[in-house]
Amino acid sequence: TIDEIIKALEQAVKDNKPIQVGNYTVTSADEAEKLAKKLKKEY
């Protein structure tokens, strides 16, 4: 679900690790936030 994706992003940001979500690779908190907002609009 979208919530699980967002939790995974938040965890990756805390661990400061890049995370791959679908076609996106998120490497920073800023990118994670942008991706989360984008995904919320889509779903």
Rank of each mutant, 00 (worst) to 15 (best):
T1W: 15
I2W: 12
I2T: 04
I2M: 08
E4P: 03
E4M: 11
E4Y: 09
E4A: 10
I5S: 00
I5D: 00
I5Q: 02
I5C: 07
I6G: 00
I6C: 09
I6M: 07
I6R: 02
K7R: 13
K7S: 08
K7W: 07
K7N: 05
K7V: 07
A8D: 02
A8S: 07
A8P: 00
A8Y: 07
L9S: 00
L9W: 00
E10D: 07
E10C: 13
E10G: 03
E10P: 00
E10F: 08
Q11W: 01
Q11V: 06
Q11L: 08
Q11D: 07
A12Q: 03
A12H: 04
A12T: 04
A12S: 05
V13P: 02
V13K: 07
V13W: 11
K14Q: 08
K14E: 04
K14F: 07
D15N: 09
N16P: 03
N16L: 05
K17V: 12
P18T: 05
P18N: 03
P18W: 09
P18S: 11
I19F: 08
I19A: 05
I19Y: 03
Q20M: 12
Q20E: 10
Q20R: 14
Q20K: 13
V21C: 15
G22T: 01
G22A: 04
G22V: 02
G22I: 02
N23L: 04
N23W: 04
N23H: 07
Y24P: 07
Y24M: 15
Y24A: 13
T25F: 15
T25M: 11
T25W: 15
V26R: 00
V26K: 02
V26N: 03
T27L: 13
S28E: 06
S28D: 13
A29S: 10
A29P: 06
A29G: 08
D30N: 06
E31S: 02
A32C: 07
A32M: 06
E33Q: 10
E33H: 08
E33A: 12
E33T: 06
K34D: 11
L35T: 00
A36C: 13
K37N: 14
K37Q: 14
K37S: 12
K38G: 05
K38S: 08
L39N: 01
L39W: 00
L39M: 03
L39D: 02
L39S: 01
K40Y: 07
K40R: 13
K41W: 12
K41A: 14
E42Y: 10
E42P: 02
E42N: 06
E42W: 13
Y43E: 09
Y43L: 14
Y43G: 09
